[in-house]
Simulated scan of single mutants.
Amino acid sequence: MDFRIGFGYDVHQLQQGLPFWLGGVQIEHTKGSLGHSDGDALIHAICDAMLGAANLGDIGVHFPDTDPSLKGIDSKILLRKTMDIIAQIGYTIGNIDSTICLQRPKVKDYIPKMQAELAKALDVEPQQISIKATTTEKLGFVGREEGVTAYAVVLLRKN
């Protein structure tokens, strides 16, 4: 099979006083993502999509939250390690399409920097990475600013 498609989803609770990392970029906000790592929901969704496309489980299988060595880790490191896993079985990234759901803050001005950071970690071109952002129109936990969600679809190509 020359092409594989994977879907990823992640959610993190937002809490006052934590740093907010999204797409490998620190976002200015009063709240940040609670997580075992740095809580970067977008990167975690992309990792899950990559691993799913390769039928290799999910991020929790490869980087469990029970591993003390991963406490507070920069999610770009997890993304790079996921890319290494994918490369070992002969695949590269074709493209990534992703969506961030977040009521506040608005992140559209951060998207080009996120694309650049993700591209650097994955050794691809920024134009291979689509990032969109939306709100939930104040509905649900995202609308109440209690959390952030991210979705990603990844196309892998056989080398």
Rank of each mutant, 00 (worst) to 15 (best):
F141G: 06
G6S: 12
L14S: 11
G23H: 11
I46R: 03
N159V: 14
D84I: 09
H44K: 13
R80F: 01
F141I: 12
V61A: 11
G140E: 05
D58M: 04
H36N: 09
F141A: 07
A121G: 08
A116F: 03
T136K: 05
K106H: 14
T66E: 14
L139T: 12
G52H: 08
L79R: 01
I73A: 06
P68F: 02
L139I: 15
L34T: 10
W21Q: 09
V142T: 10
P64Q: 05
G143Y: 03
S130W: 08
H36E: 06
N55E: 07
E145P: 00
G90W: 14
A45E: 08
T66W: 09
P19C: 10
K120I: 04
E117Y: 07
Q13G: 11
M50A: 08
A121S: 15
G39D: 13
L14Q: 04
A121F: 01
P19M: 13
D48Q: 11
T66N: 12
P19A: 12
D2E: 15
A119D: 00
G17K: 12
K113M: 05
T134M: 14
S69L: 07
F63C: 02
T30G: 07
Q103H: 10
D123L: 12
S69M: 05
S33E: 08
L18D: 05
D10P: 05
Q26F: 02
N95G: 04
L156P: 04
T136P: 01
T149E: 13
A49C: 10
G52W: 04
V25M: 06
Q26Y: 03
A119M: 07
G39Q: 11
D67A: 08
G39V: 11
I43W: 00
V61L: 14
I43S: 02
E145C: 03
L102S: 06
A152Y: 07
I59M: 13
H62Q: 14
S33F: 04
A150S: 14
L56T: 06
K158S: 08
L156S: 03
D48F: 02
P105D: 06
G23V: 12
K113C: 05
M114V: 03
V154T: 10
Q127R: 10
D123T: 14
K113V: 10
I89G: 03
T136R: 10
K71L: 12
I85L: 15
E137W: 01
V153L: 11
G57H: 09
D97M: 09
D58Y: 04
D123W: 04
D10M: 10
F20V: 06
I85Q: 05
F141C: 05
A53V: 07
A133R: 00
Q128E: 12
F63P: 02
V124L: 02
V107W: 00
L34D: 07
K108I: 15
H36Q: 04
A53M: 08
L156M: 11
A150W: 02
I43Q: 01
L22V: 11
L156C: 09
K138A: 06
L78C: 01
P105L: 09
S130V: 07
D58N: 15
F141T: 08
P19V: 12
K106P: 09
T136N: 13
A45Q: 06
K81M: 02
G72D: 01
S69Q: 08
S37G: 10
H62W: 15
Y110P: 00
V11F: 15
